[in-house]
Structure formats: structure tokens, C-alpha cells
Computed example of a mutant assay.
Amino acid sequence: MENNKQDLSNTDEASQLADCDEILLNHLMRKYATKLKRIAYLYTNDHSESEDIIQEVYISCYWNLSKFRNESNYETWLTRITINKCKDHQRLWSIRNLIYTPLKHLVKTEGSAEDQYIHSENSKELLKQISLLSHKFKEVLILYYFNEMTMQEISETLGINHNTVKSRLLRGKNALLKNLEGGNYNGSF
């Protein structure tokens, strides 16, 4: 009889822990989904692929919530998972060879048709050139310019030294500008 009580107690405890994990996961999804999806989209430049990656991120998060060590905050942890999932995604041969499509939110919706076209073409070229950069430059540029993270936040997220972030940001920007000067880009960065 005593063992049955203990088994019942363990079952109730496990159920309560699972409920807590689900509540926390729902909170994390509501709070960080937009930022994480932006990161995934900037890596993949595809809405459906970025949604798939974010689903993988939250599945991984759910299964590893008990392993979270509170060495960083949840946003940093989820951003790191997202970047790793994006890198895994880009390692696939078929995905690496896809041509990137333009970011819709970078295309102006005001001005003349000619201005909109020029801005659209510049956005396409910018994304193409970002996609060609090495991962170490691409991830820092995406986090800094598109996700609007500080260098300190990027340092914590990527687990690299602050000066390394500064160096990669500068070198990545210079590489991007050099590549853009040889292309059809007529905008500013």
C-alpha cells in the first residue's frame, strides 16, 4: 500500500512538473517568438523554413527545460538554439543551393514605382551578399543590425569575447561593403 501511495505521488509530481514546463514554454513562445523568427528568417530568407526552424527550437526547448542552468537568460539561450538550428539547416546541400528571395519588410511601400523598384533590387542584393558571408560574420551582422542586439548581448548569446564581436562586426561589415561595391547595390548600409 505504501508503494502505491509513493507511485501515485510521483505521478502527480511528474504531472505538475509537466504542467509547469508547458506554462513556461507558452510564456517563452509568446515573449520571444517574433525575435527568434526574425533571426531564422534572416538566415533562411524563407518564411516556411523559418517557421519550421522555430518549431524545432521550441521542441528542443521543451525537452531541455530541465537542463537549463540559469547561466544566462531564456532569450540568450533560445537565440543560441535558434542560431544552431539555422546553421544545421544551412548545412543541408539542397538548402545551401537555393537562391534567396528578398525580404518583404525591406521593400519600400511609398514613393514612386521607380524608387520602390530600386529599393527592392538593393534589398535583394544586400540579402544575397549577406548570405554569401561566412557564418561568423553573418550571425554577428544579423544579430546587430536586424535583431538590434548590443555587442554585449551578442557576446553573451554566442559565447564569445566582446572584442571578438566588435572585430567580427567590423570585418563582416567591411567584407559586405567590399562585395556590394562590386555588385549592383546603390543604397547605404
Results as ranks from 00 to 15, higher is better:
171 R>Y: 07
4 N>D: 13
138 K>I: 00
62 Y>G: 03
93 W>K: 10
128 K>C: 05
172 G>K: 05
128 K>A: 11
150 T>A: 03
44 T>R: 08
59 I>S: 10
116 Q>L: 07
157 T>W: 02
95 I>V: 12
2 E>L: 15
146 F>T: 06
28 L>F: 08
139 E>K: 12
50 S>C: 05
103 L>R: 13
147 N>E: 10
133 L>G: 02
41 Y>L: 11
18 A>I: 07
6 Q>G: 00
169 L>M: 01
56 E>T: 12
23 I>E: 13
184 N>H: 07
105 H>N: 12
189 F>Q: 11
188 S>C: 03
146 F>M: 04
148 E>F: 14
4 N>H: 08
81 I>G: 06
108 K>M: 11
129 Q>E: 15
175 A>F: 01
186 N>M: 10
7 D>Q: 14
128 K>S: 06
52 D>V: 03
146 F>Q: 10
85 K>M: 06
168 R>G: 02
110 E>M: 03
41 Y>I: 00
186 N>Y: 06
15 S>M: 14
153 E>Y: 05
70 N>A: 15
66 S>W: 01
128 K>H: 10
88 D>G: 09
130 I>E: 06
27 H>L: 13
4 N>Y: 08
53 I>L: 02
158 L>D: 03
153 E>P: 00
51 E>R: 10
84 N>G: 00
68 F>P: 09
91 R>Q: 10
29 M>K: 15
69 R>M: 12
82 T>K: 01
54 I>K: 02
172 G>V: 00
10 N>S: 13
52 D>G: 15
129 Q>R: 06
43 Y>H: 09
37 K>W: 10
11 T>L: 15
189 F>T: 06
113 A>C: 09
182 G>W: 04
73 N>K: 02
48 S>Q: 13
182 G>D: 15
93 W>S: 10
187 G>S: 14
50 S>Q: 05
92 L>S: 12
47 H>Q: 06
136 K>A: 03
34 T>P: 01
144 Y>E: 01
36 L>N: 02
105 H>W: 08
83 I>C: 05
29 M>H: 11
122 N>R: 07
89 H>P: 00
184 N>R: 08
65 L>T: 10
142 I>K: 07
7 D>W: 05
156 E>R: 10
125 E>C: 12
102 P>G: 09
135 H>M: 11
180 L>Q: 07
100 Y>M: 08
144 Y>D: 04
113 A>R: 11
166 K>E: 01
101 T>N: 09
24 L>E: 14
126 L>W: 12
90 Q>A: 04
46 D>W: 04
121 E>D: 11
104 K>W: 09
48 S>V: 12
111 G>A: 12
46 D>M: 02
48 S>G: 02
22 E>P: 00
175 A>I: 05
176 L>F: 06
128 K>Q: 12
24 L>Y: 07
133 L>N: 07
35 K>W: 00
78 L>Y: 03
164 T>F: 00
187 G>D: 13
134 S>H: 05
171 R>C: 09
162 H>W: 03
78 L>P: 01
87 K>H: 11
171 R>V: 04
35 K>E: 06
178 K>N: 10
99 I>A: 11
110 E>G: 03
168 R>S: 05
